[in-house]
Design a protein around this nucleic acid. Structure first.
Lengths: 255, 255
DNA sequence: TTTGTTCATATGTTTGTACATTATAATCAT
DNA sequence: ATGATTATAATGTACAAACATATGAACAAA
């Protein structure tokens, strides 16, 4: 690479730079920087990152240190390396790692996808038999129900229904635009620790089709989620209807 | 560490050793070795791994390389490092083993469902770009393709397509009515160890609808499965189309 | 036209080295 | 005894330097 394009790079990455005097480790700084970089539009379209040696040179860190940062993102499946070609953003639509406990919005943010809340509806309802049973409460004890439709700026792609255990103490006036599990953890010292999920395919009924702007009978991915706290006490029952092809559930298992 | 305890270590790790002449990278070998080590009972009880410099010395690899391996397991949350103390097994997350490794027919049997094979079709085909890439072979090298439709005595409910890596040595004349992973293990000494899966919902196209006796556009649960052996070498690529509501995927995760 | 061959260039692997950080243990002064 | 200090032993961070390997592209030979 010649002087000119090198200085272009320098210019380009001015806004992100590494502070060698900062107490935070260089590879952490580099990681942060990469996360910001790959959130940018141009990288979403499959543009390659600058190659390792050059980028290391520009950031004035060693290639090893840079690789340390890149590797982390590769492991998180946010970047894909290819020999002789380079490293680029893994822009496959939406996916969720099973052991990852990021909230929906956090994960979307990570991938540089901005999400829009289409609907947010809070009510207090009587639980049905099943829910009362799961929460281990009587059916005459009201629980907080949250309905939510979310998607990209273009169109909604998921319809959530959540029920929360009254024990938590939610009033319904909380700011539900905040990441949910953060809210529970910060304000209600309830930590979601265990989740049991059931994933299946369904045909959209009237309600679902309407919410997701689909025609009746369209395929949706349905996820039922039972969430527990540290003491394995039930805290949330969550139903999610995802527009087909908008959500891929990834699971990694080893025996 | 003195001579005696060092040689104890050597003895102890004789069974696991690193082959410097093998084509598989040292850090991969080290990773495998660690996985085996930490599976041992004594390490489950909070026993610390040997410290990095010593272990590196015993295995005759550099500390950096060893750390590469350890880091991967740390990232997977299998190991926990602690300064001044050492690295030990994180035995609190054993639940991920809930991921059953039963084969399809075994699992059905367990549930008391007798299954019927509707179709079983074996061919040799050229892999497409993606498959060749996964198998790390050229697109002109044929691979064994197995198609299979199975269900209850009433109706089919799943359509499988499997591709097997030529390395395994399958001829196509095997008895595919036997449990598949048993066959691979017994006859071809190929042990499926790691599986990465992607689950999503789709609308059935002509082919799928026909195989499963559904109408076009009906919802199906689609599962893509990448299967690897001990050395993380690819051995199978499997596509499964399940009739909606006939299959529920359950996942349990703990953080 | 097809098939090798080579070259350039990207990531991949591995080592050796050095110093920083930090939690604990041992020591010392009070 | 107890609080402060120091030493130690582990991981954490960082660099530079090789060499390995895969692959696209250009070119040459069949």
């Amino acid at each position: 690479m010649n002087e000119i394009s090198l200085s272009l790079y320098i210019l380009h990455y001015m806004k992100y730079s590494i502070d060698h005097k900062s107490p935070v480790p260089l590879h952490i700084q580099a990681e942060e920087l990469l996360r910001k970089m790959i959130a940018e539009e141009e990288y979403q379209n499959g543009k390659l990152l600058p190659n390792e040696v050059e980028l290391a040179k520009v950031l004035a860190i060693s290639r090893t240190t840079l690789r340390q940062a890149i590797n982390k993102l590769v492991y998180e499946d946010l970047l894909i390396r290819k020999k002789r070609t380079g490293t680029k953003v893994n822009n496959c639509i939406v996916s969720s790692k099973s052991n990852n406990w990021l909230s929906f919005s956090q994960e979307m943010k990570l991938r540089g996808i901005s999400i829009k809340n289409f609907e947010l509806h809070i009510t207090w309802v009587y639980p049905d038999e099943m829910l009362a049973n799961f929460f281990e409460i009587k059916t005459d004890r009201k629980v907080l129900k949250m309905e939510r439709v979310r998607g990209t700026s273009d169109a909604p792609f998921v319809y959530f229904i959540s029920y929360f255990h009254p024990r938590i103490g939610l009033t319904g006036d909380e700011d539900f635009k905040r990441p949910l599990y953060e809210l529970l953890e910060m304000e209600y010292s309830t930590v979601a620790t265990l989740s049991k999920e059931e994933i299946s395919a369904h045909a959209a009924d009237d309600v679902i089709a309407n919410k997701l702007r689909l025609s009746n009978g369209s395929p949706v991915l349905f996820r039922k989620r039972f969430v527990f706290d540290q003491g394995e006490r039930p805290i949330e029952y969550n139903l999610g209807y995802y527009k087909a092809d908008s959500f891929v559930y990834t699971v990694e298992s080893r025996r």
